[in-house]
């Protein structure tokens, strides 16, 4: 059977995609281009093909664990009798299935012919497998916006709509020689005694797919306020702002333990701040002066 193989390196981990059934994803995988590497054995692999009706029994035999709503789709999560997860993405009448191996090294993504929200589904599926697979290796995908200044990465966290991207843009416009590394889901890794932030293909609405890493300088939790005020957080406060920013499947013990251990190391080594702020350049100066 004809198969199209492509490999990427994201956050220093290798990912391979095997695309079957002549499915053409060239226009969909553009954000992965800067992360391309020559084909080789990868530590994470996803096979993409069309759904075949003879697979339906596998879903019928599994237990529905829970359901969630994502940005563009609804997600049903099933567990089969071998304790492997099956995710079903539903967009209108289109159903896409994602079968994981137990160790999350392998997955099969079965597309429907309708291909609704295909880009959203492929990105989401890969991010999920990435975080499940590597959470036990001191790797986190963190919902945040990241700027770099003087070789240090500064990571801005906050609920959707708080103004993370706005704050980053204000840095770039007001702090000389600063640049955006990622605007939605960068990778954070602890490697020996260093903590790095990597750009990734997952950057939300901003086209910012930078294959580069930078040492982490600080993490700042943003919230909207009537003036600008920076304060440092204690351990428990730090944990409580970082945990909800990390992608995870928290009811899987191994994943939850991995995420917990990484966050614990992170808050022992890095200062975590809270910035209550307005969307103005004074907020940037207040932040930059306080955390540099």
């Amino acid at each position: 059977m004809f198969m199209n193989r492509c490999c990427f390196e994201i956050g220093g981990h290798s990912l391979g995609l095997d695309i079957y059934d002549d499915i053409n994803l060239d226009n969909i995988l553009f954000n992965y281009k800067p992360f391309s590497i020559v084909n080789r054995k990868c530590s994470l692999r996803m096979k993409i093909s069309y759904f075949k009706n003879d697979l339906a029994f596998l879903i019928n035999e599994s237990d529905l664990l829970t359901s969630l709503s994502l940005e563009e789709s609804n997600l049903m999560i099933y567990l089969n009798s071998s304790n492997e997860y099956i995710f079903e993405f539903i967009v209108e009448d289109s159903h896409t299935y994602l079968f994981f191996s137990k160790d999350y090294k392998e997955s099969c993504l079965y597309l429907s012919k309708e291909k609704s929200s295909l880009k959203h589904i492929i990105d989401t599926a890969l991010m999920m497998q990435y975080t499940f697979r590597f959470s036990t290796q001191e790797t986190l995908l963190m919902h945040s916006s990241v700027v770099v200044k003087d070789l240090k990465a500064y990571m801005f966290l906050g609920k959707s709509g708080t103004g993370k991207s706005t704050h980053s843009r204000l840095w770039i416009n007001n702090i000389k020689d600063s640049f955006l590394l990622n605007d939605d889901n960068p990778v954070l890794r602890i490697i020996d005694d260093k903590i790095y932030v990597y750009g990734s293909p997952w950057s939300g609405k901003t086209d910012c797919y930078i294959n580069k890493r930078q040492e982490l300088g600080a993490i700042v939790k943003l919230s909207q306020f009537e003036n600008n005020d920076l304060s440092i957080l204690n351990n428990i406060q730090s944990y409580s702002v970082i945990l909800p920013s990390c992608s995870s499947m928290k009811w899987d013990k191994n994943i939850a333990n991995g995420v917990h251990n990484t966050i614990e190391t992170l808050i022992n080594r890095i200062s975590i701040y809270s910035l209550k702020c307005l969307p103005n350049k004074e907020a940037v100066y207040c932040c930059y002066e306080g955390i540099r």
Binding site: L65, N235, I236, L243, K250, W251, E264
Partner: peptide, 12 residues
């Protein structure tokens, strides 16, 4: 968490 203890909702 270091010297401290927390309860987190981790179950499904």
């Amino acid at each position: 968490l270091g010297e401290e203890y927390i309860i987190v909702g981790e179950g499904v």
